[in-house]
Amino acid sequence: MSIRSTIIEQIRSICVSQGKPAPALTDGTLLLNTGLDSLGIAVLVASLEDKLGFDPFSRDDNGFFPVTVGDLIALYEHAPA
């Protein structure tokens, strides 16, 4: 499964587990509008680390924080695995 589809699937699955509808997601969707709050994003980062084997946030030293779903996917896709 690609990084992109893994991320999309995980966001949906966390939303559903929190009793929210699975959101429609495009690259332009603001992370805040996905239904994930900061705890939801924290869970997302932990489960993506287990699925993908890395956590790009822990390596990021320029303070960049993703705002949209597309930013988040790019962060993972461009991280050295």
Binding site: S38, L39, I41, A42, V43, V45, A46, D55, F57, S58
Partner: peptide, 12 residues
Amino acid sequence: ARPNPITGAVIA
């Protein structure tokens, strides 16, 4: 505790 960049830690 599992270290986490968003909340400091999450539960594992």
